[in-house]
């Protein structure tokens, strides 16, 4: 390991100044400097890097928000779980303005997380379009939350497919994170009281006729889940 060309050092001991261990330089100066630099770097990374957040015109940050106290008991569980109150959020809407989930309290809500790049989402979307047409007069709200895409991509897609329901843009994925998505599409069925009655991960693509598409659900499954949330608030427990 040692360089054979390197002469043997004669060692110390004849110096004119009092001997001071060279290790002290590292301990006194270099090590503290490195530690300080590392801490400063960590602070910069955590605090000053862009988080990609966006805000509505009144300065409210888009993303998850606290569920208003008047909409749930103080000890109520607010989680993205069946039987719990659906976590609230404020998001930019594709058409214009913003949309807040809790504004739909009193309505049954089908909350669908999707993206245009997601093939199963594309497959199931016509069924949501049909279902919305059938039940919107009964107060059904279909809220499609697009994950981390921009309006330029979503707009033509939604227009071509007749998606005439609210489409929200979760640009940084924070709402998807709050709802602990395992993948796309994922659909939450929320009743009039704001409780999540069921969660479905994967495409709600119904099997029809003799066809046997892998992963397709039983005919009437979507209708059944919608019927569960259409019942008046308080008519059925979580």
């Amino acid at each position: 390991m040692a360089n054979s060309a390197e002469p043997r050092d004669l060692g110390a001991g004849v110096g004119t100044r009092p001997a001071r261990s060279p290790r002290s330089f590292f301990r006194r100066w270099l090590l503290p400097a490195l530690v300080i630099a590392a801490i400063a770097g960590a602070i910069w990374f955590l605090e000053y890097r862009q988080d990609g957040a966006s805000y509505d015109p009144s300065g409210r940050r888009y993303g998850p928000v606290d569920l208003p106290a008047s909409l749930a008991p103080a000890d109520a569980a607010v989680e993205a779980e069946q039987g719990d109150f659906a976590p609230d959020f404020l998001l930019e809407q594709l058409s214009a303005g913003q949309v807040q989930l809790s504004d739909f309290r009193g309505h049954p809500v089908v909350l669908n997380f999707w993206a245009t790049w997601c093939a199963p989402c594309r497959k199931e979307m016509p069924q949501f379009v049909d279902a919305y047409q059938r039940y919107k007069t009964d107060g059904l709200v279909l809220l499609a939350v697009d994950m981390q895409e921009g309006a330029s991509i979503i707009q033509p897609f939604a227009q071509e497919r007749g998606m005439n329901f609210p489409i929200a843009l979760d640009r940084d994925g924070e709402v998807g994170d709050e709802y602990r998505l395992l993948g796309l599409p994922t659909t939450f069925f929320i009743d009039r009281g704001g409780l999540i009655r069921s969660v479905f991960t994967g495409p709600l693509e119904e099997r029809t006729g003799d066809t046997n598409v892998q992963g397709a659900i039983e005919p009437g499954e979507l209708e059944k889940r919608i019927a569960e949330i259409m019942t008046p608030a308080g008519a059925a427990g979580p």
């Binding site: 993206a115 994950m147 994925g173 994170d177």
Partner: peptide
């Protein structure tokens, strides 16, 4: 379009 990361990644790129 396709995403680079699994869904929910805050650094998501498409």
């Amino acid at each position: 379009t396709l995403p680079v990361f699994p869904v929910r990644n805050p650094e998501q790129l498409q």
